[in-house]
Design a binder for these strands. Structure first.
Lengths: 141, 141
DNA sequence: ACAATATATTTGTTGTACTAATTATTATTA
DNA sequence: TAATAATAATTAGTACAACAAATATATTGT
């Protein structure tokens, strides 16, 4: 029972390094965006005009965190909050022209940065990792 | 090249949930400690009286983060900073009696909590996960 | 011994995570 | 319809993460 305890440290330090590496490369390429902000930008490009709850679900952020990420992205004119026509409590998050433009500019470069971690691994490794992580995720829900 | 991009979100959300689950269970068991503080406590039990640099390396924290974690642990009397006899710049981090006591009390319960994620997975899965995560970690060093 | 350099830790700043509490609005139901 | 509950988003407080810069002490090369 004890022997598997180490996976949590392993997971923690790996995901930290993945994020850190991406952030460092973002900076080198002068992206002027954080990794978490990028995640939101990418999701919005796949499906624009979502409310914050949907967006929080998709990006795996909780509501307060997403609120602050969006605050920062609004300041940078990447997204804007628009009143929802059918529910006056909620906002529609809308990707601006600048946001769209940046997203298109950055996507291929980000893919390249992400691929770096996969240089010494195989397709099967990817499938295994996906399965194992999802199993862990579900076990703790 | 693009298809592997998703691993980063997967890693991020899984490690987040692992931490979140442990923290929730810690609270339920009234441990009065954070997951990150626990990691430090456990490492100190394996080898007491390390300086902050060694401890930072082992726990995967950077130095400023560790400084702040130790500040909180000192306040709780779990550890204490002692002057190093051979280097006046550095501190020896010493597990107190209370720290030792708590560590022993909590270890078996924490192992049980950690094992929860592994219920539906095998020994081979564990080896695979370890190998893949370490490969990613090394690729980005 | 002196200057340059390296090491150990702290401080400051910005961003993210989680909890709890708050406000505003919508939905339920008695 | 009035009271109650649920939902969307925000705010406040505490903890952690990454980076840069500051401080103090050690080490190295000359």
């Amino acid at each position: 029972m004890e022997k598997y305890g180490a996976y949590s440290l392993l997971l923690d330090r790996t995901s930290k390094r993945v994020k850190q590496y991406a952030q460092k490369r973002f900076k080198e390429e002068n992206f002027d965006i954080t990794v978490d902000q990028w995640l939101v930008l990418k999701n919005l490009n796949d499906q624009n005009d979502q409310n914050q709850s949907q967006l929080a679900e998709l990006t795996g952020k909780d509501h307060p965190t997403l609120t602050r990420i969006l605050d920062l992205m609004c300041k940078k004119n990447l997204v804007e909050r628009k009143a929802s026509p059918e529910d006056r409590r909620s906002f529609i998050i809308h990707l601006t022209e600048l946001g769209k433009q940046k997203q298109e500019e950055w996507v291929p470069k980000v893919d390249k940065i992400r691929a770096k971690a996969w240089e010494s691994l195989t397709e099967k490794d990817y499938q295994d990792l996906k399965r194992i992580l999802n199993t862990i995720y579900e076990s703790l829900s």
